[in-house]
Design a protein around this nucleic acid. Sequence first.
DNA 1: TGCAAGCGGTTTATCGTTTTCCTATGCCAC
DNA 2: GTGGCATAGGAAAACGATAAACCGCTTGCA
Lengths: 355, 355
Amino acid sequence: MKQRVTIADVAKKAGVSATTVSRILNGNYSQTSAETTARVLEAIRELDYRPNALAKGLKQMKTQVIGVILSNLQNPFWLRVLKGIEDTCRKAGYQLMICNSCDDPAIEAEHIKNLQTRNVDGIIVNPTPGNRDLFEQLLATGYPCVFVNRHLPNLAMPGVVMNNIRGASLAVEHLLEGGRQRIAIIAYQGEITTWTERVEGYKTTLLAHGKREQDLLIELVPNRPGAARSAAIRLLKRNPRPDALLSTTNLMTLEILDAIQSLGLRIPEDVALVGYDETMWCKYLNPPLTTVRQPAYEMGEIAAKRIIQLCKGTRRTKLDVTVLEPELVVRESSRPASATPDVGATIAAGTGTSG
Amino acid sequence: MKQRVTIADVAKKAGVSATTVSRILNGNYSQTSAETTARVLEAIRELDYRPNALAKGLKQMKTQVIGVILSNLQNPFWLRVLKGIEDTCRKAGYQLMICNSCDDPAIEAEHIKNLQTRNVDGIIVNPTPGNRDLFEQLLATGYPCVFVNRHLPNLAMPGVVMNNIRGASLAVEHLLEGGRQRIAIIAYQGEITTWTERVEGYKTTLLAHGKREQDLLIELVPNRPGAARSAAIRLLKRNPRPDALLSTTNLMTLEILDAIQSLGLRIPEDVALVGYDETMWCKYLNPPLTTVRQPAYEMGEIAAKRIIQLCKGTRRTKLDVTVLEPELVVRESSRPASATPDVGATIAAGTGTSG
DNA sequence: TGCAAGCGGTTTATCGTTTTCCTATGCCAC
DNA sequence: GTGGCATAGGAAAACGATAAACCGCTTGCA
């Protein structure tokens, strides 16, 4: 199938060479007279000519496309991140190629190779630990790449992450203040920094408040539908029963809610619940849910700015990691069992950048 | 920036011409001996060669990329559609280029042109009415395009849509059976088929059940945050007050919930609420929400299959529209004010295809 | 006086593939 | 021998755009 209109057609129509047309297209007016420029622009308009991005990309080895690899698009958290990325990229004239790795290193690797094959200018990725070698290679070859939300320990890839330790810490401190004694946490198993750090935040905060190792109630579950629900039920059947649950994920929270409901327990009277990651529906749950709010949009924005900077920079730009701070949104689900509601209050934590 | 390994490098290493390498890459073994083939494959492996998709696309005018233009990625409904599209395309070896039109015809037009410029093999789009001419042109030139969820009246574009009339009808009939007398609907203004059809379904069903024109309570609001909330408050302050509200959108439902809560009304005692489009959180709302469930994943799947078929088909394939049937998920929010809960029941409606 | 830069462009090379012709070579039947 | 015809593979021309070199002439500047 032949392309409708090529630069040659425009050139012929305007009575000039293709080069002249190309120069005008690229805003290089200095070498053409005003009349010629006008004639060419008129021809472009009349033929509704638009340059073939493939040919342009082949020649320049730049495509104005950024690859984005996310672990789970089903999670609304990523939508907000994506929106931040998208808005920023669109403003800068970049198109997105979005891929879903499903947290599977094999799929992720495939996507990375595919994106490179397509000569995307850079890649934003929520990395799985399984492809460390691949990322090391990207870093070594200077291929523009930025991590988002997660990082890989001891890998100097630029990125944007959340302060997960702080997030869990905020939640635990809030529950302690509310008089909760037996706080449990459910998290996914694996070397994913977002998960391990939240558990770490839980642990250090409790220990700092005088709890002992054996008081900790940590339930690690595989990242698979239903696993968190079972774990919650297991926890809630313990004797004595935990009086507070800390979820570490958006979707996990819904499973825990399900578990609590199925056991006929009341929130917050029997057990308090704090979710991780604020969504549009948290406010309307039964009861309204206390959550750790994360600046997702902002994270996407920063990641996009970072990758664009890397794409444009001729020399290797500085490599650093930005850490964004979460805040706690307090609602009824974590209200002290014997207290008046304290709905809508927010404990902020500020935002900052560190190396 | 020079590409690391090209076909020429492989050819040199294997002691053959680029032609031979290309032939082998494309599975055309009939013209090369077994030894040569083995030698070339070995060279490819050793050099970790992967063909440049840009050059290949330029030559063939095929990119194995499908463009997807959606009106609002923030809506989880589209995520499920997207997942259907993605799974299907990945299986078939296609990559996605996802764009957000934000229901703005100008942005949509820009995306369409951009996608064509990048020589995507086909486009799946949730169309805005503002670009009818553009779509007519696509249709005329035979550029593969498939509509999803919406359609444009009198435009013979292949597509997949939901039976929206039926969806609203199911909801209204359910409310009528529950004894509700003053059923109101809130919908967005505009020539968007999903919205107009739902209103139509509401209208025809009520009229068919003996209501008169003046009994209809239709509130049309602009598609803008907060508008639905105001409309709901306006409706609920009427005297007599509506005893049932039918939402027509995912996000609108949350706004309506907000309105009801702010007025201190109880669901379903004071007013019943039925949402449109089932999400993962509907079950956990306060109270659990009755909704119209739509086969979103399936819709994406079918749209993807359709576009792939069009991309591959040398001749113009048959152009038809698939209509998917919704079902009602009954939960507490629509329970008759004076009745026992009837939670979890589902009224199915079957699925079919029509021209 | 001599060299370089600018005028408004064109020619030509190039990006990495695929594709369309070709060309050897060997084998067979006559 | 020689013509015919597979077989295995190569050379070169696309594909559409951009970058570099260059055209013959004029002008600026040391």
